[in-house]
């Protein structure tokens, strides 16, 4: 599908953010989902960092794929190390830059940047944006995406990541006071809650044919 109109762009975004939510329908990136969701403030920082890193990373890897890896014919077996290297280096430079240039922004999401550098969700989204259909994360994606489409798609995925993370963090905060049985406290009840939350996202399957 070529994204040529505003409505198609909106569909691409919604399809990536909600209908094919990376956390609750694809179950990719679950480590930060469970790791930082125990408090709201860490979840906000993580969500910002994911939006920032994912969009940046898939923009960079898209360019690397299009102009280096694919033309040289080495992409098929080199893309994982290449993408990881690009993403990690990029995030490190951004972190160093942010620390000096914008201390406010660095305090908000600084410590989460290195944490998600090699996160599977970032790599999966970057791969999907460069070679659509690889993970079958979004059937609306055609054989290839333009850079603009790749960025909108990645923005959708990362906003959906943040939305699911904040939803889950608010639920877990409510659980803090609950008299959950001793043996289920902590991670077990978090997994049960995440499972029930993903029930609701099943209801989104197939919306608009996405």
């Amino acid at each position: 599908m070529r994204v040529s109109t505003v409505s198609q762009m909106a569909l691409l975004f919604v399809g990536a953010a909600l209908i094919n939510n990376i956390l609750l329908t694809r179950f990719i990136g679950l480590c930060p989902f469970f790791g930082v969701s125990s408090s709201m403030s860490t979840s906000v920082g993580m969500s910002l960092a994911v939006v920032f890193v994912m969009t940046l990373a898939s923009g960079a890897t898209w360019i690397a794929w299009k102009f280096v890896l694919a033309p040289l014919g080495v992409g098929e077996f080199l893309y994982i190390p290449a993408f990881i290297l690009i993403i990690a280096a990029l995030v490190q430079f951004v972190e160093m830059y942010l620390r000096k240039a914008s201390p406010v922004l660095y305090r908000a999401m600084g410590i989460y940047l290195p944490l998600i550098t090699t996160n599977c969700a970032v790599l999966a989204t970057a791969t999907e944006a460069a070679k659509p259909g690889f993970f079958k994360m979004n059937i609306a994606l055609g054989a290839s995406l333009s850079l603009g489409e790749a960025l909108i798609y990645t923005l959708g995925v990362s906003v959906g990541f943040g939305f699911a993370l904040l939803t889950f963090a608010a639920l877990r905060e409510r659980l803090e006071a609950a008299p959950v049985p001793e043996s289920l406290k902590g991670s077990p009840i978090a997994f049960i809650t995440a499972g029930l939350l993903s029930f609701a996202y099943v209801g989104l399957a197939g919306w608009f044919g996405l």
Partner: peptide, 27 residues
């Protein structure tokens, strides 16, 4: 969900989805 979804009815999932959002809405 009813008009553009793949299932004829989506009441169950609509309410479960909003149940999940309830604590966030409260905040």
């Amino acid at each position: 969900g009813r008009f553009f979804g793949s299932m004829p009815e989506s009441t169950t999932f609509a309410i479960l989805f909003m149940n999940g959002l309830a604590p966030l809405l409260d905040r």
